[in-house]
Simulated scan of single mutants.
Amino acid sequence: MVNRKVALVIPTYNAGDVFYNLLLEISLQTVQASCKLLIDSSSTDTTVKIAKDFGWKIEIIGKSSFSHGGTRQYALELLPADIDVVIFMTQDVRLLNGKCFESLISAFDDCEVGAAYGRQIGHDGASIYAVTDRNFNYPPVSIIKSMESIGTYGIKTAFLSNSFAAYRMNDLRRVGGFPVVDICEDIYTSGKMLLSGRKIAYVAHAVVKHSHELDLLNLWKRYRAMGCFYRENQWLQDSFGTANKEGWKLLKYQMSMCISRRKFAKIFKFLFIDLVKYVAFRCVL
């Protein structure tokens, strides 16, 4: 493997005592970051203490100043100038094995790849709704996406998740880093990289556990925020297409999952959840 200088960044807020488990898993990775940076939004629990015990560099910001894009961009400005690759993770991820980082950054062996993201599977005990969402968005087969992939993947050509992603620093700087937005900063930056001629790698063998069980109110807020983001960044749909086709594909996948598992009663809840997502997303476009 090419010797690269790697940085690791995790934004945190009240990650809880279980945060210890993630930092332990990170300390056992075959690839170790030379810079481990925590951007903490003024946690009131043990998050900062745990990170200090593991020797992390810690930067504390005000809770109200956090944004998904702006905080990550701030982190980039704090990294040493000689970093080749930066890995971003969220505090609720769990690493499946000791080679997650090694597998993820191996994507940069292809000199045209500007960013890479790993596979996410549901946490232990995750509901069928969370598991189905993860299985649909993170299949077991790796792919390399470029502008030529739009005919196959449409808007998902630009899909990427900062819950577990890595960026080549030169390429990230070239597109201006992350925008100051509250959602979809990863897709924004991925889209900019693709338009600049770089490729995005999905690395299916770099696996983490990560899923959410959102209630209807938070689901509504999330998809309304996504609708606002796409309205304000029309260039993404102009360049890669709308989300309509992917929405129908997801619905078909959900139905097939329910039928194959004989969870027929779940079909109605899936339909209701999808309706909430659709209305929340569309009402602001």
Score class of each variant (00 low, 15 high):
N3V: 09
K5E: 14
P11Q: 04
Y13A: 03
D17V: 13
D17N: 13
D17I: 06
V31D: 04
C35Y: 09
S42F: 03
S42H: 06
T47V: 04
K52S: 14
W56Y: 15
F66R: 06
F66L: 00
S67Y: 03
S67D: 05
H68W: 02
G69R: 10
G69Q: 06
R72I: 00
Y74V: 03
L76N: 15
L78V: 03
D82Q: 01
D84L: 03
D84T: 06
I87S: 11
M89H: 07
V93A: 11
V93L: 05
R94Q: 14
L95Y: 02
L96I: 07
G98W: 00
K99Y: 02
F101Q: 13
S103A: 10
I105D: 05
I105R: 01
I105Y: 03
S106R: 09
A107Y: 04
F108E: 13
D110M: 02
C111A: 12
V113Q: 11
V113E: 10
A116D: 14
R119H: 09
A126H: 08
S127Q: 06
T132M: 00
D133R: 07
N135P: 00
N137G: 14
P140T: 13
I144S: 14
K145M: 15
S146N: 14
I150G: 10
Y153I: 02
G154L: 05
F164M: 15
A166P: 10
Y167Q: 11
Y167H: 11
M169F: 02
N170S: 14
D171H: 06
R173S: 07
R174W: 04
R174Q: 09
G176N: 06
G177C: 02
Y188A: 04
S190N: 07
G191Y: 03
R198H: 10
K199C: 12
A204M: 07
V208F: 11
S211Q: 06
K221R: 14
M226K: 15
G227C: 07
C228R: 12
R231P: 01
L236Q: 01
Q237S: 13
D238W: 03
S239G: 07
G241H: 05
T242L: 12
K245Y: 02
W248V: 07
L251W: 11
A265N: 12
I273E: 14
D274A: 04
D274E: 12
L285D: 12
